[in-house]
Amino acid sequence: MKPHALLALGLMAAPAMAQDRPVLTVYTYDSFVAEWGPGPQIEDAFEAECGCDLQFTAAGDGAELLARIRLEGERSEADVVLGLDTNLTAAAKETGLFTDSGVSDVAWDLPIAWDDPTFVPYDWGYFAFVHDAGFDAPGSFRALAESDTSILIQDPRSSTPGLGLLLWVEAAYGDEAGVIWDGLADNIVTVTKGWSEAYGLFLEGEADMVLSYTTSPAYHLIAEDDDSKEAARFEEGHYLQIEVAGALAASDQPDLAQDFLAFLATDAAQSVLPTTNWMYPAKTPEGGLPEGFETLIQPDEALLIPEAEVPAVRDAALETWRSALSQ
């Protein structure tokens, strides 16, 4: 064989062809499919009962995932999209590409009632500022703004937690959000493109606190046996992120897609999520939460802007944010 032909073969990432078994294609975000993410275990567990071949395709984060589905439209290979969140579901429904999940009557363990016919929640978490144990963290946005505590946040235009913070301040303060952002401006060390950059800078000691999740300390505790990280509890309440999956109307495997969505609510899937995705399971499995999760803070109130209002609120909040931080 000629060298360039070999090279071309090497470059072609030909997925293993499954003989005779139907293929279920699930689009998800990048970190889900990593070997240390939930993807591999969920794939094994579902394939054990479905007699099918589950194939993941990864595309950036949740927002990029939605952009990709919009690009592909009805011709998409995807049967299921897994990894949108409550800030994206309205836009996702507007595309008309999704169909009913067929999943109902599940007793979800979510901080809010869930009766969406299209999307099935699989995990959730609260946004929170994470800091080192022993640091005297402020207990609210107002206290934070008045303190000289330094924080790292993410850009709402390029990051899911960044957008979460934007909506958090919006949900907690409404018309006063601009004042809060003005007050926060001098606390912000910098605004990063994504969560990874901000968290990396935080671990390098660049700021007192970083925007992340209430569940972040659980990772350090469980995976690294390190109890030095804590999340600050804010009295305004914490903004909720619920991650969901949905089936595409144009799927050529509609039954299998519904099976998969139903499977997500079972213990087999739910027990994988806490220690791979580091989020709360949408339905607590039989054995309860992993040891260590009980040490996490419990917010007094779960904040969530109704999905239908998100698009309009988001654009206005972005303007507020931009003008406050561009001074």
Binding site: S31, A34, W36, W278
Partner: peptide, 15 residues
């Protein structure tokens, strides 16, 4: 990309 995934999964040392 793999390095980025590691960072995204809190695994800063591996990253």
């Amino acid at each position: 990309l793999q390095m980025y995934r590691l960072m995204g999964a809190y695994r800063m040392q591996d990253a």
